[in-house]
Amino acid sequence: MLPAPFEYHAPHTTEETLELLDQLGDEGKVLAGGQSLIPLLKLRFASPAHLVDINKITDLDFLEERDGTLRIGPLFRHKSAERSSLLASRYHVMADAAPQIADPIIRNRGTIAGSVVHADPSGDWGTVLLALDADLVLRSKSGSRTVKARDFFSGPFSTTIEPTEILSEIRIPAAKPQSGGAYLKLERKVGDFATVAVAVHLQMDDGKVRSAGIGLTAVGPQNLKAERAEAALKGARLDDATIKEAAALAAEAAEPKEDHRGSVEYKRNVVRVFTERGLKRAYERARGGG
């Protein structure tokens, strides 16, 4: 299968990229890991006139903690997330998710930023960023703006990014002591998209929940943030009753559709069970265990 013809650009700097995107408008499309875009081009679900490949820009592959913020660059790939000791030690929800994205060969090229912009309701990273309450920095030739992850997704494969913008940085509040997270994903086989997945991030404060983030994958038109469940946890002690209540609220927030991966009831129940398990695991980790 060959994509429809297009013109190919491989700029060496972000400035050049933004200039090009500005000129191309609707005709241009950014190419990052290509692990979603190239299959789409081959199936002719997309046929942009111009591809702007950012892989030749050398300073976009970064993960760093600076000034109280974890910053992720556009070319930070799934495999680097999988191998990062920083994520493994303090950003559990990310470390859990990384090895569950696609398969190892796809992870060698695919990027976190590309997944987020692709906005597949069954994609995992958007959910993780919702749980972590991330900010997305969108940059164009004329400037940059910052959008909350929860305001970024606007439907299946749709976001509020403009064709002239790139996602130039993902910003996550730096993990503090007494924080923990977990990502639980049900898949039919290794390498598959989620039937259901749940992301949890907890910030504890002397036995009470200071803040909770819960994201849901593959149970709605986009990655969902279970805001009522999060609110129910705030300020509470994580006893069994509280965990059960939050899990029930997360299940209510889910809007699954029946498909070959399962029925509505089944998926909703998995959300409930995974939220319970995820909260327990995150709590354990926040206390320095597991």
Binding site: Q35, D103, I105, I106, R109
Partner: peptide, 22 residues
């Protein structure tokens, strides 16, 4: 369709599905 890995080659030493790279 990027699923099977039969097309895997090494690019700068890293396995890549060559049906999913230009």
């Amino acid at each position: 369709t990027t699923h099977c890995g039969a097309c895997t080659v090494l690019v700068d030493g890293t396995p890549v599905k060559s049906c999913t790279m230009l």
